[in-house]
Amino acid sequence: QSYDYDEGSETWPFFMLAVLCVILVPLTIMQLWEALAGGEKDRSSQHQQHVLGDLSERYTGNDVRTFRAKYAAKKSKWLAKRNLVIIAGWTIVAYLVQHIGSNDAIKDAATLLFDPYALLDISASSTDREIRSAYRKLSIKFHPDKLAKDLKPEERSVLEEQYVMITKAYKALTDEITRENYLKYGHPDGPQATSHGIALPKFLVDSSASLVMIVGYIALLGFILPFFVSRWWSKTQSMTKKGIHVKSASYFSDRLFNFKPSQVVTTQLMIRWISHSEEFKLMFPALAPNIFETLLHDHINRKHSGNLQTTKFRIVAKSHILLFGLLDIATTFRNLEISNAAIDTLKALVQAIPLSPYSQILQLPNVDAKRFVEGSVDDIRTLGKLFTYDDAKIGKILGIEDATQLQETLTVASNIPYLKLIRAEFKVPGESVITPLSTPHISLKVLVRSAKHKFFSPNMIPDEMCQDEQDFDSLRDPFASVSEQPKLPQSFAPYFPAKRSGCWCALVVLQKDGKVIQTPMLIDRLSFANLSQDFDKRTVKDLDKDFNPENWAVGTIKIPFSQPAPEEKGDYFFRVIIKSTEYFGPDLDFTVSMAVRE
Amino acid sequence: LNYNSNSKLLEVPGCSEDVEMNIQQINKLTQDLVAENNPNFTPQPHDDSTSMIKKLFESGLKNLQQQKMAEALKSINLAIEMAQRKRAPWEAFAVQLQELQFMLKNRVDLSLIQGKFMDGLQDLDFLQNTGLNSSDVFIRKTDALMKLKQYELARSEVERGLSLDPTNIKLKSLHIENSRRLAEYNG
């Protein structure tokens, strides 16, 4: 019953040391890694550097810049806090080590430990011969008969003691039984008296401090633990796996569930829906949804919102995740119209441009919208069409006088990544046809091209450039080859409060009933190498001479198919929609047929 | 929920639009029931309203024969309005749906001939929404969208039409024509 606590406080320092090291060592390594590699991690991460990112930084307005600066600051403070913990931790460790070193109780306890190699002062890996010779040397020195006569009795006893130990050590290493004992119990004489105790320092358990302990325990178990657990639990409970608040998700589901065909789907409707999200209410409890709606519309129309400017930036930055949540729910309800509208709304918020036939043009910087819409002689609605004119004419059409600004606008326009479909087919890894009930995926070969590039027909890209390597691991996991492609670079979105690199959303629609059949797949890895090509449609005249397929990087997109191929043979048609979340224009919308054969 | 006795209508002050819509439906139903003087009415369509609608529609077709398009459109619109108003909510849905779809199909052609592409397009949308997926709906819809310069939408329409009816010549030629327009549209 009477536990003997750690009288000489010889065990709890080790326990504390162990606990601290377990926490501190990985933390310190991580911290060092962040501090050293952290910088270049941002720089040299897979994001390919791209001219649009730099231009986007150049065109970012001051209020967005200050907003970003404020937001970014938070991160570094957090870093400091972690440093603090590390420094404190290591000082405690230092103190403990010093305490252990100085504490003699620990020292003599240490001598209790029987270590034959130390006694014979030979290395642990020495052979029997060395052990024997070492033993012989030492025993001659320490043998009682050999000891000098004039020793004092207590010296003599120490030496005799020493001799006994040496003999024991020798036996522990050579004689079978004692070695057996030593290996099993760590001591040749068999199991030693081991003292079991609680590694708690004495001062903690004697009567006076025990009250503090009890109170400590009650506080820990009664308040602190429940507090953290409940906070963690409410946090996890309140967020869906897509990262939006449960209440927002249920609101969106309710809107979709009660959606009437007589309602018209527009971006205004999407904005109204996300304005009722729980996130906004939590961020700004004092504001009503219609205020959020107005702010979002202000953002899209690039109107200043006065003192609600920061509020506007925060909800616009948040709307990104909300629209993805809404998109996910809309695809779960198989509603294509709302899925499309959600992505269009995201584009409108990213580019701060309302959805209109001229959005592709108006998303360019320095465009004088009024002059463009009135002035445009024949209907120019796409960048491709814009690039059929020469630069000067384009300047006039867009209403840009200043040459450098025009140059920058043209750079942006020619670097907006358009997708061109080269090959599209259903594929089952390792099969040449789609067999019934197999697990196909949609394999696309696309070319990232600029709007100024001359158009050429897809079959000018030879088949061998569109083959996937048929080696084993690509058969085992066909999606591995996609992740070798570089990540998308920072997008040109100077009005968006946060830096972003965007993605394409791939929707798969069943042509029979026009409904979405699976949740969207996000494409965030594609090489933009082709954009650096000139290949201007105004200069390139005949394709055969100037066109060389080798110069073009073919991108791969693989869309997993959510359900197995149908049972019976036949042709099934699916519509694949690949919509960019960043820019107006670079969307793909085509039909792929699945020919199910034996 | 409170009931207004003299106007015999239900109302729920300050309710959501979904509840509001249900209340309207109930009110409409009760009004028609109260107005119905024939005690043993059946879900079969009221034959005198059918004949009225038919007469109006016929006159529309007559105008069509005489190449008087505007009048034709007007009298077909009247026929549709008549159907919308006269038919009681309990008259067989299948009959009302067919009747409305039939009249709209004619109205679509009249609108397209007269260049009212947006009108034609919305009627075609309605026909598709109510389950009419025949090829000629896709043909007309693609044509209307091309006339409205919505080439992307036209392409997805015609591709869907071809998915449902791969051998349709008209759809194929529309697809080629639209791809050409798209290439031009994209410069």
Binding site: V264 | L100, T130
Partner: peptide
């Protein structure tokens, strides 16, 4: 039938919205 009527009425609204949007 009433839902059908509502969808039919929506044709006018859709015409406005789309002509304005396009």
């Amino acid at each position: 039938n009433q839902a059908l009527k509502r969808r039919f009425q929506a044709i006018l609204l859709r015409k406005e919205v789309y002509s304005e949007q396009w």
